[in-house]
Amino acid sequence: MPRLVDHDRRRAELGEAAVRVILREGLAGVTVRGVAAEAGWSTGSLRHYFGNQHELQAYVVRAATDVLRLRVLPRVQRPRTQGSVVERIATIVEEMLPLDAERREEYVLWSAIVEWERRHPPEGGSVTWSDQRALYRQCVAAMRGYESIREPDQATLPHPDAQVELWAALLHTFVDGLAGQIVNTPGEVSADTAAWLLRSLLQAVPRE
């Protein structure tokens, strides 16, 4: 009797192997041969699931996106009741900064997703970018006294308060730039410096 193959499980195993390759070599390392070797498969077996490198990388980017959401969302959504509003918001935003080994891995995955989207612009725009902007929009809105948005889809829409939109864009741009400096010039931007810079920006958000 032929052995049944759990194709969903095998695809998941491939996704896990490919994420390990991204963390080690970046998106360029995600080749049929490279991922097959990481997973312990033959290239022929891998081609049963993906006809070419483009299909494989597209799948891997989706897997990396899922990994980021599973890792980051629980930390971002953790209830925060201690400290000032600036301190509470800062601890949320810091989850997006590569301040430790885990978050540096997440930055590598995010960079791979950005690289893929640059090569293959998604219809309707970047979902990852939209998710990040929604987070910053909610952070700024909270600082300006608005209630939290319960429906995730609503958070991706422009806020009626123009100041929320402006400062969400500024915060988004600032965090992306600061993350790049932490990774690329670690001797110049320490974790303490990054924390101070972030809180300085948040202090400048107008409350009225």
Rank of each mutant, 00 (worst) to 15 (best):
G15Q: 10
G44M: 10
P2G: 04
A39P: 02
E38H: 04
P74V: 06
R69I: 04
A58L: 14
R47L: 12
A64W: 12
V76N: 00
Q77S: 04
L70G: 12
R78C: 13
V32A: 02
A39I: 09
H54T: 14
R10P: 00
V5W: 00
R11D: 07
V67E: 08
T43W: 07
V5S: 00
A36E: 05
G51F: 07
V5C: 00
G26Q: 09
S42K: 03
A18L: 06
V21L: 11
A39Y: 09
R24N: 10
S42Y: 03
E16T: 04
D66Y: 08
V67R: 10
D6Y: 04
V35W: 03
L68F: 11
V72A: 08
T65D: 14
A39V: 10
R47W: 13
V76D: 01
L14V: 11
H7V: 11
Q77C: 05
R47C: 05
R24M: 09
R10S: 10
A39C: 06
E16K: 01
Q57P: 06
L73W: 11
V60R: 04
W41M: 13
E16H: 05
A28P: 06
S42E: 01
T31Q: 07
R78M: 12
V67T: 08
H48P: 03
V60S: 04
R75I: 03
R33P: 01
S42L: 01
V30N: 03
A17C: 07
S45C: 01
T31S: 12
S42T: 07
E55P: 01
G40I: 00
V61P: 01
L23G: 02
A12H: 08
G26F: 12
G44T: 14
V35K: 06
